[in-house]
Design a protein around this nucleic acid. Structure first.
Lengths: 336, 336
DNA sequence: GAGTAGAATGTTATCGATAACATCGTAGGC
DNA sequence: GCCTACGATGTTATCGATAACATTCTACTC
């Protein structure tokens, strides 16, 4: 069924049907009512593919995340989706699985759908995506990090500085034998940045780095459970395990509890990200607070601004930092 | 840039370029190589919107889930995405937020994109979506429940029977003062089914229902933390709190631990879904095991079969039950 | 060497909506 | 009462790829 069919049924032209469906055009109220009624009765659903081709507006925005299982990214995607829905846009989600090559393939596949904006979870990108993005001439927003050479707009925070701040705060609490537990894969630059931040904070305090790694990103609770052994065999005198993320930290704590160890008395543990589990779990987990929803909302806002800006006068690149501050909780609160 | 431009550059026709891009057509190897080279050099990205309109194949499948934050649904979506990617299809994700009206709107919006299949998270549907789905003439798969009147294909399990089985197993363990804690909203039929299963199991043992509710779906860990008070004020003699989901159960356990209560000695707790947290948390949580990934993979498989089946001879409706069995763990293991 | 099969490529029409321009009619100003 | 302006609607061309059919041209058969 096409617009033509609706039109013929009412003795009008397809164009009038088209106009009746987009509320801004000038159509007589009675005509519009008749069109909407006919559409309802016939169960007509417009073909947006044809509409997109003709109007050169796909109604899509594309977002690439490394993982959907991570509650943080899903929350960002959720907030972004809501923000864009207000502008009548659908979100196309691509899952890179922390794989740079996969990201490049997805960028190509998604650009073929002519998105009107694209959101990348900042990470080391395959250089080949840059010309493709440039040619697409659409707003690009990188989220979840502050890249050294931004492509265009950015909403995020420095994973390095945030982790450095957390470790510095913990050192200030009196900890010194702090061991870092992260993922094995360096393609995940967010993980690598956090590790670097840890190293810097340790160095600033005159301490050497104590690095362990387990599993591949994203780090899971199960990785944390196994990770405790790794940490203890490499650095038996560890006082505090600084984990790359909250789920990993939770796993380490669970492993401690299975051994009958009290956290933080026997071993302290910190995470990153302020997942719900960090607030609710017992003990509550010391972490870096990130508002994943805010990142999505801000990114949606920037895309809105970019659309509102004149086409010929594109919006100047926006770099919008979001807070990422240490939050000390019971898992590292020890009287000394 | 269009195919025309590539073609002109090589002195061939656009059609040949089109054929070179889809490997099955007959194009001379040298021609194909030249085309691919030119495309690479020029950074040409085909316009899939035009392609879809012409070929009447959108390359999309649409999936509707009540929530993306729920690790279960995101895992299903992930597995589904991988299964469909193998067939070169992209996944369009819609978030219903447990809202039937929203679901209906999304179905309409997504059908306008001409998906080649649609996956619904089974729930009470708005009746208006049925004619729209019928008209779309595409495979429809309902997942995560066994609806009484399936639309077409189904991959899921009976939430009612699964919960009934879990409660029966717990009663067999010696528990009798079992209080149910779920969400307040009945629009979430999966939650309502689980509650019904609880009631049936209690009735079968000659016990009356003890029902509490907290928050709106999806139940969070925070809801669980607050829920303990609700349960105790309504049924102070409760021995076991049967929660509608694992995160809720985790919250209840956390609240117990904050009170210094030992789970399960002072109060036992059960969940539903076998989330990672149920396995890793201490104590491990008694639950109903569901393989969320399997649901996605099976759904993808059915869609594949439906495509392979002749267009005129559509695949007969497939009802594929997945296991959902009780898994007794430490959170209810008490010597009696 | 005529005939034919089939590989390689070109031509034309089409998918279904919408942009851009054209037309018609009527209300209101002078 | 004529003219203008604009509201309401129609017509035509177009978006960019691909299906379907047409056309070459080569290689091989008998």
């Amino acid at each position: 069924m096409r617009m033509q069919d609706i039109a013929r049924r009412l003795g009008i032209s397809a164009m009038t049907v088209s106009r009746a469906l987009k509320s801004d055009s000038s159509v007589a109220p009675t005509t519009r009512a008749a069109v909407l009624k006919a559409i309802e009765e016939l169960g007509y659903v417009p073909n947006q593919i044809a509409g997109s081709l003709s109007s050169r507006r796909s109604g899509f925005a594309a977002v690439l995340v490394p993982s959907l299982n991570n509650p943080h990214f899903s929350e960002t995607v959720l907030a972004l989706g809501s923000a864009l829905q207000a502008r009548g846009m659908q979100l196309l989600i691509g899952n890179t699985e922390y794989d740079r090559r996969k990201e490049a393939e997805l960028v190509r596949a998604l650009l073929a759908r002519k998105p009107e904006a694209i959101i990348l979870t900042s990470d080391g990108h395959d250089p080949r995506i840059l010309p493709m993005l440039a040619k697409a001439k659409i707003p690009v927003v990188e989220i979840w990090d502050l890249p050294a050479r931004p492509i265009q707009h950015v909403v995020g925070f420095s994973n390095r500085i945030a982790m450095r701040g957390l470790i510095a705060a913990l050192i200030a609490q009196g900890y010194s034998r702090i061991t870092y537990l992260g993922e094995a894969d360096d393609a995940d630059t967010r993980g690598a940045s956090r590790r670097l931040g840890y190293c810097e904070a340790m160095a600033a305090a005159g301490l050497g780095p104590r690095l362990c790694s387990i599993g591949r990103p994203p780090a899971t609770m199960s990785d944390g459970e196994r990770g405790l052994d790794t940490v203890l065999s490499a650095f038996p005198d560890t006082e505090l395990v600084a984990c790359v993320s909250d789920p990993l930290a939770f796993g380490v704590i669970a492993a401690c509890q299975r051994r009958g160890w009290v956290v933080p008395d026997r071993l302290a543990v910190s995470g990153f990200g302020d997942f719900e589990i960090a607030r609710i779990g017992v003990p509550a987990i010391t972490t870096v607070q990130i508002d994943a929803g805010q990142i999505g909302r801000e990114a949606g806002g920037i895309i809105g601004e970019a659309f509102d800006a004149l086409r010929d006068l594109p919006l100047a690149p926006v770099i919008r930092p979001v807070p990422a501050l240490p939050c000390l909780r019971a898992s590292t609160m020890i009287a000394r």
